[in-house]
């Protein structure tokens, strides 16, 4: 399968970017071959909706999972609708380390948003562990 990782650079050796929509880089990884391909972050500098544009890019790339720091409530809804499993709280380690933990089955998907968004009607992200990060996913 294919999965996406947000990174501070363009390789698996870069750290996981805590942000989703405004991440520095996105990598699409084929878990069977281990090949990692950089994917342009579509709307990192959009005034709004950066996380939604990133979610669309993941759908187009055929990713079935996302490894990141935190996603906001709107991106969380879009990823949920797209059937993409979300793994959060992975900042502070390399993309490769996060990928290895995923491959080892050591990660638990968590589709509820951990970052804060602006939508008061929707579920507002509050990290169970207390760590809240990112803006707008």
């Amino acid at each position: 399968m294919k999965l996406a990782i947000t990174t501070m650079g363009t390789t698996l050796d870069d750290a996981v970017d805590p942000r989703f929509g405004r991440a520095t880089g996105l990598l699409i990884v084929d878990t069977t071959t281990g090949a990692a391909t950089p994917l342009a972050v579509p709307a990192a500098h959009a005034v709004q909706g950066a996380g939604l544009a990133a979610a669309e890019a993941l759908v187009k790339a055929g990713a079935k999972a996302l490894l990141t720091g935190a996603v906001g409530p709107k991106a969380a809804r879009a990823l949920e609708a797209a059937g993409i499993a979300v793994y959060q709280g992975l900042e502070g380690q390399s993309a490769r380390a996060a990928l290895e933990r995923f491959n080892a089955g050591a990660l638990t998907p968590e589709n509820a948003p951990r970052a804060m968004g602006h939508a008061p009607g929707g579920a507002i992200g509050h990290a169970p562990g207390g760590a809240i990060a990112g803006h707008e996913g």
Partner: peptide, 10 residues
């Protein structure tokens, strides 16, 4: 508004 939200996040 938005600016205050952006400042408060996290």
């Amino acid at each position: 508004g938005c600016p205050a939200l952006s400042a408060l996040t996290g």
